[in-house]
């Protein structure tokens, strides 16, 4: 198989896996980045969401070939010390219950805030509805996204 290079969390990774292999399995099984979760496997739940060149893609559906030469960010790469505004907001609001879907939720929220720094509730609905949470933490997710927007704005004012 040809070698595929992907910039994952700022680090150049290579694999000779079949380019049709879902990115999720390359991340988890080959590169041991197990923070990204398998949920439904058909793009319906969002648990496997990672950031691919700025977009919140479903890694269970995304073939490795699509990520070739591109930047992928997983939950492990958001920050080294959980200092990313979305991670801090998630802690402050105590969002997770069982936690299984939360890395996907956080990655989707991060993309939302990168595109719309001060999202309305409707923006949040548009971006997050397809990320399911069986524990029903949706209200806390919404609060945490608004809080992350405030934290980011405060950081920007300081800088």
């Amino acid at each position: 198989m040809p070698e595929t290079k992907v910039l994952v969390n700022g680090e150049q990774r290579t694999t000779d896996l079949d380019p049709r292999t879902p990115l999720l399995w390359v991340l988890r099984d080959t590169w041991n980045l197990t923070g990204t979760k398998f949920g439904c496997g058909v793009g319906q739940c969002g648990a496997c969401t990672v950031i691919l060149d700025g977009d919140a893609v479903r890694s269970c559906l995304t073939p490795l070939a699509r990520a070739a030469g591109k930047q992928v960010t997983t939950i492990e790469g958001l920050s080294r010390d959980r200092s990313h505004p979305v991670q801090r907001a998630w802690l402050v609001e105590q969002v997770p219950q069982c936690g299984y879907c939360q890395s996907g939720q956080i990655m989707a929220a991060t993309v939302l805030l990168s595109k719309i720094p001060q999202p309305t509730d409707e923006d949040i609905n548009d971006a997050m509805t397809a990320n399911l949470c069986r524990c029903g933490t949706y209200h806390r997710i919404r609060r945490a996204i608004h809080r992350a927007a405030e934290l980011s704005a405060a950081e920007a004012r300081k800088a």
Binding site: R58, L61, K115
Partner: peptide, 18 residues
């Protein structure tokens, strides 16, 4: 929408998964 793009799920060819 800006954070929920069609291509987040829809790839450039049909998925092989049922």
């Amino acid at each position: 929408t800006p954070a929920m793009r069609c291509a987040n799920c829809h790839q450039s060819e049909n998925s092989t998964a049922l």
